[in-house]
Design a binder for these strands. Structure first.
Length: 663
RNA sequence: GCCCGAGUAGCUCAGUUGGUCAGAGCAGGCGCCUUGUAAGCGUCAGGUCGUCGGUUCGAAUCCGACCUCGGGCUCCA
């Protein structure tokens, strides 16, 4: 039999006997790799280790070190979860169970509408570990759609998937998905692939999978949740189990530890601990009140935003919280956004809606007079409070609320001005975000939807090119969401990455070809003719409340000094030093700093601790020596040890520098 | 909205099978202590056990409804 030649990623070649599998290749390279190998990538297509390799193929052996390997590990663990559930609940059926970030889930429907309870997870976990201990091989086989329908008799979700896959070949929406994902398993068109492990467990799956269940085990089942089939409220509610899975015990422990850490910086917990914000039940879900310490931080954020807009070419405007139905009819909100609006108040025979957006008001301001091309661009800025009727289950602290304030602006410009306007706007956006300590950005460009869209193609192209240019000028990496734009215009969304690596979508820059049309906006051009302006919606922080929440989590409550609610706390060592402490605070407050005295009613150690726990950036201790010499003992937040005998003037200068530098 | 889970002092929690189970620590008030760097001592006050109904001789505990909060509701075979 002729040998086959395989190319490896490093460019080297290996000769193997004909019929050799990925596992054989891994073993040929070395015993360590043989043990670690999970799947192979053959000419860029992921496959099981067990399958034979073709002569001349480029093959990479994939281990759990790579994302692809981890994905496979999680995907296979999801299968074991399904096997365990089907073992334990006779009559249960299963839907889908993909790998996700850090883990996996699987959706089930239990007989007679039964639901999982949190206690069930323990039994499922135990059964999964038995399956893993049995080291059952994952065996792939392929079949026709009609045979597959028989194989999954009684499992309606699997049958639906098979039907969709089959229909997909005729060119439905599913075809695109399959085309995009087929390389994962290398399934030929018209063939349904399945995996069998254990005595009778079979799942419909593209694969690939790890060689056997024994390769799994570092997992934890996490939560039970309801999830609609295909994410559609009109579809049945399935029972979803989430889990996390890793290549080693250590990585699993690390992940669980990170979850605990993330919980510690949960903004809702910190908001309560630091006395910043609360959500009194009497207000209703998704509505918060700002306590003095939270409010002063928010004020710093807003003041900074206003100052930047004031020097950034914006005009300030204000608009009311409610408006008559006719405004929302004209803007179209009542057509496509009514579900998210609070119901109207009836006053004097008219219906007034709380505003979910500020744009129509700004449009009216534009429309309050005749505009010349010489006036453009016009940039209207408002910290506008809006109210949106979010689903009660979607509400989440300050991150998703029913009342919030946008750092909102609308720019009205000519078509010719769009590109330049976008470029400077993106620079402006990043500059503002950087001031708050974010420097890791990721952008998304959303382009023209394939179906309905308003505005001519030329306009879309120009605006989309403008956005693209702005992104490259700013040196921002971005992904393109083809067809992901709204019907009324393309947009850029900007994510920041926080201190523990989580992305938050903050900024959005959105072209709008629709509202100017609906409101019949015009300007007089240099040709004397009337033209339609282009409108740009933009928010940098998005929601001030949410931005505050993101900052709170980013800094784990330890706001930089310029934002900190309490910048300096002065602790007199004993009662006799109270006067000196007060004189320091007086001076600091006069200079515009936020400072207070914590009197000597408690032992110094206790007060120092209280200052640290409150995350005050500077805790000053002043005693007899300091009174005599005009000095302070400085405890900088995060410093290991105090700095004694620091001249007060030096401290104030340092503090001022720190605040100026926004540190 | 829908699925699962949770609601006991301001906060974190304990309360065994329904029968002194209404408790603790921290925070708060008041005294004492006058402190040189991460919790001094004493004392007082605080709760309709989320709300409303029901079962029971008796409910924080069991049942139902409601309210609020938390997690989830396509990262897609």
């Amino acid at each position: 039999m002729a040998d086959i030649t395989i190319s490896l990623p490093d460019g080297s070649k290996r000769i193997l006997p004909a019929g050799a599998s990925g596992a054989d290749l891994a073993a040929d390279i070395g015993p360590g790799l043989a043990k670690a190998a999970l799947i192979v990538s053959v000419d860029g297509i992921q496959r099981d280790l067990a399958g034979p390799l073709d002569d001349g193929a480029s093959v990479a052996v994939i281990t759990a070190d790579s994302d692809a390997g981890l994905h496979t590990l999680r995907h296979s663990t999801a299968h074991v979860l399904a096997q365990a559930v089907l073992d334990l609940w006779p009559g249960a059926t299963y839907a889908i169970g993909p790998p996700i970030l850090n883990g996996f889930y699987y959706d089930f429907e239990l007989p007679d509408g039964a639901t999982f309870s949190a206690d069930d997870l323990e039994a499922i976990d135990a059964r999964m570990r038995e399956i893993i201990a049995a080291d059952q091989p994952f065996e792939r086989f392929e079949t026709s759609a009609s045979d597959a329908l028989g194989l999954f008799a009684g499992h309606r979700f699997k049958q639906e998937i098979i039907e969709r896959v089959t229909a997909g070949e005729a060119g439905s929406e599913m075809a695109g998905e399959m085309a995009a994902t087929a390389p994962q398993g290398g399934t030929a068109a018209g063939v349904i692939s399945c995996y069998r492990n254990g005595d009778g467990f079979i799942d419909l799956c593209m694969g690939p999978h790890v060689p056997s269940t024994g390769r799994l085990g570092h997992f934890a089942l996490q939560t039970v949740a309801g999830a609609y089939w295909r994410g559609d409220e009109g579809q049945p509610m399935l029972q979803r189990i989430y889990g996390t899975a890793w290549a080693s015990r250590k990585e699993l422990a690390g992940h669980l530890h990170r979850l605990v850490e993330a919980e510690k910086r949960d903004h809702r917990r910190l908001a309560a601990e630091l006395d910043l914000v609360s959500w009194p039940e009497a207000l209703g879900p998704g509505l918060a009140v700002w306590h003095p310490k939270g409010a002063i931080v928010r004020k710093q954020i807003e003041d900074y935003s206003r100052a930047r807009h004031e020097t950034g070419g914006y005009d300030f405007v204000f608009s009311p919280h409610i408006a008559k139905a006719v405004l929302w009819e004209t803007s179209g909100h009542l057509d496509f956004y009514a579900d998210s609006m609070y119901p109207p108040m009836e006053v004097d025979g008219a219906s007034y809606y709380p505003k979910p957006m500020n744009c129509p008001f700004h449009v009216l301001i534009y429309d309050s007079g005749q505009r010349s091309y010489r006036d453009l661009p016009l940039r209207y800025f408002e910290l506008g409070a809006v109210y949106r009727y979010e689903l009660s289950g979607a509400i989440h602290g300050l991150m998703r609320s029913r009342g919030f304030t946008q750092d909102d602006a609308h720019i009205f410009c000519t078509r010719e001005q769009v590109a330049a306007e976008l470029a400077s706007l993106l620079e402006f956006t990043l500059s503002v975000l950087r001031a708050f300590g974010f420097d890791d950005f990721q952008a998304k460009l959303s382009t023209r939807p394939t179906e309905k869209a308003v505005g001519d193609q030329e306009l879309w192209d120009m605006a989309t090119d403008g956005l693209r240019e702005a992104l490259s000028t700013a040196g921002l990496s971005y992904v393109v969401d083809e067809g992901g734009g709204a019907f009324y215009g393309p947009k850029i969304d900007v994510d920041v990455t926080d201190a523990i690596g989580r992305p938050w979508q903050l900024s959005t820059i959105q072209l709008d070809f629709n509202l100017p049309e609906r409101f019949g906006l015009e300007y007089v051009g240099s040709d004397g003719g009337r033209h339609r302006p282009v409108m740009i919606h933009r928010a940098l922080m998005g929601s001030i409340e949410r931005f505050f929440g993101v900052l709170l989590e980013h800094y784990a409550g330890a706001f930089p000094t310029w934002l900190a609610p309490e910048q300096v706390r002065v602790l007199p060592v004993a009662g006799e030093h109270q006067g000196y402490a007060e004189s320091i605070v007086e001076r600091l407050v006069a200079d515009g700093f936020r400072a207070s005295v914590d009197p000597a009613d408690e032992p110094l150690g206790k007060r120092v601790r209280a200052g640290k726990v409150a995350k005050v950036p500077h805790v000053l201790v002043v005693g007899g020596d300091d009174v005599a010499n005009g000095t302070v003992g400085e405890n900088a937040r995060g410093a290991d040890s105090p700095e004694r005998d620091l001249p007060l003037d030096d401290f104030v200068e340092r503090l001022a520098d720190e605040v100026d530098a926004k540190r």
